[in-house]
């Protein structure tokens, strides 16, 4: 008998997925099922937190291009 698991399907680039795996590695509290290198299922209740952590992680590593401020 097949099993159904509730969750949120996340589709992203492999690089982003690597970061998600890294976030999850701390307390294994996000990922329900690791599907392939671009897809995984995470807990619905944790999605907002995951997005936030991902954003934090990326802002630490990425340099945003300067805004051209001319009006």
């Amino acid at each position: 008998m097949p099993k159904a698991v509730k969750g949120v399907l996340v589709q992203c680039d492999p690089s982003i997925k690597a970061i998600i795996l890294k976030i999850d590695a701390l307390d294994h509290d996000f990922i329900v099922e690791d599907l392939d290198d671009q897809t995984l299922v995470v807990k619905e209740s944790k999605l907002v937190e995951l997005k936030q952590r991902l954003e934090d992680e990326l802002s630490n590593t990425q340099q945003m291009p300067e805004e051209s401020g001319s009006e």
Binding site: G7, V8, L9, V42
Partner: peptide, 19 residues
Amino acid sequence: RMKATGGFLFKDFVTAEEY
């Protein structure tokens, strides 16, 4: 950076036919 879709994952199928 990621696309999120709420729903259900079906797994643990015994036979390929059933799947």
